[in-house]
Amino acid sequence: MADTIIKTEELAFSYPAEEGQTPLAALNGVSLEIARGTFVAVLGHNGSGKSTLAKHMNAVLLPAGGTVWVDGMDTCDERCLLEVRRRVGMVFQNPDNQIVANVVEEDVAFGPENLGVPTEEIRRRVDAALKAVGMEEFVLQAPHHLSGGQKQRIAIAGVIAMEPACIVLDESTAMLDPSGRREVLDTVRRLNREKGITVVLITHHMDEAAMADRIIVMDGGRAVMDGAPREILTRMAELRAIGLDVPHTVELLYGLREDGFDVPVDALSVEECAGAIVAAL
């Protein structure tokens, strides 16, 4: 239990419906545990409930049924609200709509300021956070002059400055171009490895999920698959059935097997895939 950072039990939620309509259930009994220090990807198509799940992880939404614990604190307990939000930081989809200040350093300082951290300590945290995301040279820049990827790194720095145990990225790469996505993913991966920060990455990009330690696949408000990327991303038929893709490497290997090649299907990376094919030729 000590090394579980987020735990949900029979979590259920539905958004309020318009008059006369039955509310649509967004989550239908999700039970899962996220271990401290891991990198977990949550995959699913739009409307699968993945974003709703993410918003329960730091009490943006409160469960209609079931319970969510963050570091042992029930998110429904109002006394713990600030502490829950400090420990699980959230980065959203639209980079423009989560930056509060007109100067990078003041934006990064926003969280610690709200927490009442002393001034000298805020300075230290802001500098450390900007360094951790590789944006230290932008400290006095105006955020609207930055690229999408850079803005998201500022948002990540703003979360890091609260010294959280976990970062949840709620489709934070969806609006970025390939280089922006790479910037953000490299940043969170480094934070995960070097600082041991737990990362929960909500996405519908298979290649992003492939770099996680564990993948949870959501569909119809339930967690329908849960396991290592190698195990999940090779279940081609099942993933397709719920509107997701498989990496092209996996698709190729499936095809080659049908053609009589003796290849495994779980070679996800380009290098592994090429290696497997060379061995089978």
Binding site: V60, Q98, V100, P112, E113, L115, G116, V117, P118, V126
Partner: peptide, 19 residues
């Protein structure tokens, strides 16, 4: 933005410090 601010523990001016 309101949600993002709440997520960063904004709860009004009370107990706020400054950079």
């Amino acid at each position: 933005l309101a949600v993002a601010m709440e997520c960063r523990c904004y709860h009004g001016g009370e107990g706020r410090t400054k950079l």
